[in-house]
């Protein structure tokens, strides 16, 4: 197999950073042989989650890692911010719930687009880790 790509970290601070991060996620998934539908799902999930960072915390980061091995192609993306945190996480994971006047599709929508989805949040640190996988 090809050597895994080195991890890439992107600062998220304005709306063009959202575009940069989602394009990088798409480029890596294309490189690893994920199909168009997977590429689009991943890029869209990254777009939703990095926008949350800007909207709720102002700034943060997006780390894109290639964790592929001989058996599996895996992309893990960790999106972090040091904002106020998500006050009611179960509520925020419900469809249609939004504190910002959005469509409320961000978190629950992103969860449905990826294979792994983990979110932890407290004041000062919110981290969402997502991954997509396919057999090598």
């Amino acid at each position: 197999m090809t050597e895994p790509r080195p991890p890439a970290r992107f600062a998220i601070g304005n709306s063009s950073d959202i575009v940069t991060a989602r394009q990088a996620a798409r480029a890596l998934s294309a490189h690893l042989g994920f199909g168009k539908a997977h590429q689009t799902r991943l890029a869209t999930a990254v777009s939703e989650l990095t926008r949350n960072v800007i909207q709720y915390a102002g700034e943060g980061s997006c780390l894109i890692e290639d964790l592929s091995d001989d058996q599996e192609r895996v992309i893990r993306i960790s999106i972090e911010d040091h904002g106020p945190g998500i006050p009611n996480l179960p509520l925020a994971m419900e469809d249609g719930f939004s504190t910002s006047g959005g469509l409320g599709a961000g978190l629950p929508g992103a969860r449905r687009l990826v294979d792994d989805f983990h979110v932890s949040s407290a004041p000062g640190l919110t981290r969402v880790v997502i991954a997509i996988r396919k057999p090598a």
Partner: peptide, 16 residues
């Protein structure tokens, strides 16, 4: 609208 974009929009939530 691209087919994979349509799929993603519906998966994310109806009526987007």
């Amino acid at each position: 609208i691209q087919p994979f974009v349509a799929m993603t929009l519906i998966e994310m939530g109806r009526d987007l």
